[in-house]
């Protein structure tokens, strides 16, 4: 796959950074655990974009393999995480992290 004309490496990185920052901001400013969870996924995918872009530029496939691993792990993580959130909601009737702060000293 050729890069599109006028689209350089920097553009990919820019998209990635934008997505990543959105993710970080989401985690920082939202209190809903599900939204925060989605933001984590967003950050993961931002990284995936970078990896694929670099893989293309350098002509090496290692990074792409990495991406598959990340996707698999993310999928597993979603399965576990959502299950936890389900149970939390059933017991606490909320998914707000302001309320869910019992796990401390």
């Amino acid at each position: 796959m050729e890069l599109l004309p006028n689209v350089t490496m920097n553009h990919y990185l820019l998209v990635s950074v934008i997505l990543f920052v959105i993710g970080v901001a989401g985690i920082l400013f939202r209190r809903n655990a599900i939204i925060m969870f989605m933001c984590v996924e967003l950050m993961l995918n931002a990284v995936n974009i970078t990896l694929v872009a670099f893989s293309k530029v350098w002509g090496q496939s290692d990074a792409q393999v990495f991406v598959f691993f990340i996707m698999v792990v993310a999928a597993a993580e979603v399965a576990v995480g959502l299950a936890i959130l389900m149970m939390l909601y059933r017991n606490m009737h909320t998914t707000s992290t302001d309320v869910l702060d019992k796990l401390k000293w």
Binding site: I27, R31, T97, K102
Partner: peptide, 17 residues
């Protein structure tokens, strides 16, 4: 040191970033 672990998720993320 225990002040650092207050259970607020946001604080943890902020610290990480």
């Amino acid at each position: 040191a225990k002040a650092a672990q207050n259970g607020k998720l946001v604080m943890y993320v902020l610290a990480m970033i």
